[in-house]
Amino acid sequence: MQELAQQVVSGLATGSIFASMALALVLIYRSMNVINFAQGEMAMLSTFVAWELNQRGLPIWAAFALTIVIAFVGAVALERIVIRPVEGAAPLTIVIVTLGLFTAFNGIAGWIWGYVLKTFPSPFPTTPVRVGDVAFSLQDIGIIVVSLGTLLAIYLLFQKTKLGLALRASALYPEQSRLAGIRVSWMLALGWGLASVVGAISGFMVAPVVFLEPNMMQGIIVYAFAAAVLGGIESPVGAVVGGLSLGVVLALLGAYVDFIGTDLRLPVAFAIIVIVLMVRPAGLFGRQKAVRV
């Protein structure tokens, strides 16, 4: 029972990282109908920037704050320069462009920082806290709080501000929004910036756990795909629920099902993607789409 509770909490911690990455994917999918395959590598690059700032003497939380600004500005610039020329192109074209970004960013990080594992300072104490018989790590709790806090902030931004309304409007009705005076194309760039910030935060959270290196996010982005598909790729709430439940399921499978253990977590994610897309393509929280012929 005790062990079960610990597994659930650590599952929720990894799950909240999946949830943030999945939300970043959903933010871009909603506005452009495209998956940004470079989302994980953008997060990895941001995490390296934070590490570098920290190495140069900035306290870790200040490094995070500065990196978030860099991640936002960088992603907006990226959208303007690289994605803008293919904005109306076929989805596969944009997919290939984001794959190009994925490969290029991975190489850039390897070029500047090398492929040696780096320890990333944890912003939270690693001491356990005891609640009754159960020991939780403060790091896990910290990860959950920061990730869910980020998701809440994004939710408030989208639901309670005028900017959020403009972002939602231009995602759902680009033509009408343009008529109402919203600069739809800039809203797309802003979406990229926000997604990049959410990704960067999940990078900060995961780096102390898995060590920092250029391939750090490659597994996590696959889990984020699975989380986004499970929750429904158009649904922000779905991304969060999908991410958390995937984290818990993987933790429990790893602890209690010997056949799967920790080795077969990626194939499980693949199986989830395929099964969900075959059985219920809209995911748990998405709406089934009717295609007009």
């Binding site: 999918y29 109908n33 495209v34 998956i35 395959f37 989805p91 596969l92 997919v95 490659q218 597994g219 696959v222 795909f225 699975a226 598909v229 080795d263 077969l264 977590r265 990626l266 194939p267 994610a269 693949f270 993607i273 395929v274 897309l277 075959m278 393509p281």
Partner: peptide, 28 residues
């Protein structure tokens, strides 16, 4: 047969997950 149900972006996503699953399966 799986791909018949997954158009465009979804197929890209599923096949990338397949590629990522190969090394762990081979090791297991």
């Amino acid at each position: 047969f799986v791909a018949l149900r997954l158009a465009g972006v979804y197929l890209a996503l599923a096949t990338l997950a397949l590629a990522a699953s190969v090394p762990p399966l081979l090791k297991r």
